[in-house]
């Protein structure tokens, strides 16, 4: 704390340190300049190239506006998002339930673990053709692929979270004669929540990948189908619109899960003991 007299003294002695203006205090200025230069170069360079192969920012903006006005973008986005919600919701519910069961019961863990490990090791994309054979090309195959992509991170994180809930907390609950249900919902679940949220964060990114993969292969509806369609008819500007929308979805989902993580699981249990 410096009082008024201190300030005067500092001035008299000429001790005031001038804070020199530094570019590093304004990182957004550097970022903005970088993006602006990039866009301008892209515009200049892109206009010279065959529009079939490449495009430029203003063309992308025009294409974006056209797709928005025609309602096509919104319609396909809604189709994609509803598949995403259904598949991700299912993987969340089933992943948390099975994860809690596997974390708390060694018997359940032993029964399920070999199958879970085998399925988790398989790159899930490889199963997409099989799912298409079983479920056709419609909405259900998308939901199934998204489910498969998002399920394992949630399951595995929930299981390890539930497994490493500190034994002393569970024992306190037991000492106060809490029934198993209360131990599960009042002790184990809240303690495992930071792990579950970390799984959710991983899963949402993978769900988005699953959505695009399923739609690319079925190529009927959704953002992935738009990509595939515009790729085939060489509408590069429209492809960029879809890619940008997907990028925004990715960024949005990352921020949303981070926010949710802070809200729901601000604490992190530090003391751990295997129960």
């Amino acid at each position: 704390m410096t009082g008024a007299s201190d300030e005067k003294l500092i001035d008299e002695l000429g001790l005031r340190r001038e804070h020199r203006w530094s570019i590093y205090d304004h990182p957004n200025l550097i970022r903005g300049a970088s993006v602006a230069v990039f866009l301008v170069l892209w515009e200049i360079y892109g206009r010279r190239i065959d529009p079939i192969l490449f495009t430029y920012p203003t063309a992308v903006a025009v294409a974006f506006w056209k797709l928005l006005v025609s309602g096509e973008l919104i319609r396909q986005l809604l189709v994609s998002l509803s598949a995403l919600a259904a598949g991700f919701g299912a993987s969340l519910v089933l992943g948390v339930i099975l994860g809690l069961a596997m974390g708390r019961s060694r018997l359940a863990e032993a029964c399920l673990e070999p199958h879970i490990n085998a399925l988790y090791a398989t790159p899930q994309v490889a199963l997409t053709p099989l799912l298409m054979m079983w479920l056709g090309l419609g909405f259900s195959v998308k939901v199934a692929v998204i489910f498969l992509f998002a399920f394992f991170p949630i399951l595995i994180n929930t299981a390890s979270g539930a497994k490493y809930v500190s034994a002393s907390m569970v024992e306190v609950g037991r000492a106060y004669l809490a029934p198993p249900r209360q131990i599960l919902f009042k002790i184990v679940f809240p303690a495992a929540l930071p792990f579950i949220m970390a799984g959710v964060r991983l899963a949402i990114g993978r769900a988005l990948v699953g959505m695009v993969v399923a739609e690319l292969f079925t190529a009927i509806t959704g953002l992935g189908a738009m990509l595939s369609l515009y790729g085939n008819i060489f509408e590069t500007a429209k492809m960029f619109v879809v890619i940008i929308v997907l990028a925004l979805l990715g960024i949005g989902s990352i921020h949303a899960t981070q926010w949710l993580e802070r809200r729901l699981a601000g604490w992190k249990e530090t003391e751990r003991a295997v129960g």
Binding site: G205, L208, V209, M211, V212, V213, L216, L223, G224, L227, S228, Y230, G231, M239, V242, I243, L246, A247, G250, I251, I254
Partner: peptide
């Protein structure tokens, strides 16, 4: 943040 598979086409 962009799903890389979207870049495949």
């Amino acid at each position: 943040a962009t799903p890389r598979v979207a870049l495949i086409p």
